[in-house]
Simulated scan of single mutants.
Amino acid sequence: MALPLNVISPVLLILGILSTGPGFSDSARIFTIINNCKETIWPGITPGENFNGGGFDLKSGQSIVFTAPVGWSGRIWGRTGCVFDKDGNGTCQTGACRSALKCKASGDPPATLAEFTLTATDFYDVSLVDGFNLPVAVTPLNGQGNCSVAGCDQDLRPSCPKELSVKVKGKTVGCRSACDVFNTDEYCCKGLYGNPVTCQPTYYSKLFKQACPTAYSYAYDDPSSIFTCVGTDYVITFCSARNQTVCTYHDNRLVCSGSNNEDFGSQTGRFGILLLALVSLLNLLIMS
């Protein structure tokens, strides 16, 4: 029987802690995915081989930890309003990757996308080019370089223009892009508009950019939307402010954003951290 996700998370955290020790490739990046939304979401990830097959449920308040090697280039997004059967087949109101729980392809728009290319210098961004369905923040930790927080922490659904809104039972669950709705060269940056000189911000992309200044609002919105960092770990937080403190473990240390990092390695060492994580796991098993 599969363990519930709130039990799996500490197990993966332990693996993440151990993986940062001697003998583990320095190229690995730790990804911590957190759901601060009030409802369950279903993260979709492609390629998903390093991320539990590309899809899983994540209840409100839960988090999960993965590692990915340099060379991985992919997308992470949240799906909403999903119903899956025991075989992993079902439907979602937004972000669905066909009918599968474990995604093998990108999700259907509208979906807020966190995008990554892991190289010697990582590139990452949050994109609204395929529309919006959930606030997302990407916080790099323990890296070198610019390493800015990327994301869209505003909920664009209540203010979404009527012509872009996706509604379910009268409630706006997503905000489509103008390209998705109107499919013109101007909105889609194609044809005569397929370059950064002729493809310029539109009325709709400006609305997105005003609300989320560090997210891609259209295809060539590079200067203020794409970020770089060297040797970093990532915390991807759904429904959270960009300046909210988030943490991950790296090289025996609890590394947090916006605070002085406490060096657990100097106090407890690797086995002390492992013991603390095992105690947390035991407590979760007892509660479940």
Rank of each mutant, 00 (worst) to 15 (best):
227 F>A: 03
163 E>N: 07
68 A>F: 00
131 G>F: 05
28 A>H: 00
108 D>P: 01
288 S>L: 11
37 C>W: 05
206 K>A: 14
12 L>V: 02
219 A>N: 06
53 G>C: 01
36 N>A: 11
170 G>Y: 09
27 S>W: 01
145 G>N: 09
95 G>W: 04
251 D>Y: 06
173 V>N: 04
16 G>E: 03
181 V>R: 03
237 T>L: 01
207 L>F: 10
58 L>G: 03
51 F>T: 10
178 A>H: 03
81 G>K: 03
150 A>H: 06
214 T>H: 10
201 P>H: 08
270 R>S: 12
75 R>P: 00
230 V>P: 00
43 P>I: 11
142 N>F: 07
180 D>W: 09
124 Y>C: 06
134 L>E: 14
74 G>L: 05
73 S>N: 11
8 I>L: 11
284 L>H: 08
28 A>Y: 03
80 T>L: 09
67 T>L: 06
237 T>C: 05
63 S>K: 12
139 T>P: 00
83 V>N: 10
24 F>N: 06
275 L>D: 14
151 G>Q: 05
205 S>C: 04
80 T>C: 05
275 L>A: 15
82 C>M: 08
187 Y>T: 15
95 G>P: 02
226 I>T: 15
196 P>A: 13
170 G>V: 13
204 Y>E: 09
245 T>V: 14
181 V>I: 15
223 P>D: 14
103 C>P: 01
186 E>G: 00
233 D>L: 00
65 V>N: 08
22 P>F: 09
78 G>T: 12
147 C>L: 08
177 S>P: 00
109 P>V: 14
155 D>Q: 02
33 I>F: 04
272 G>S: 08
259 S>P: 00
32 T>Y: 00
13 L>A: 13
120 A>R: 05
113 L>K: 02
206 K>C: 07
221 D>Y: 03
177 S>T: 13
9 S>D: 13
83 V>Y: 06
68 A>Y: 00
131 G>S: 10
7 V>K: 04
70 V>C: 02
142 N>M: 06
64 I>P: 01
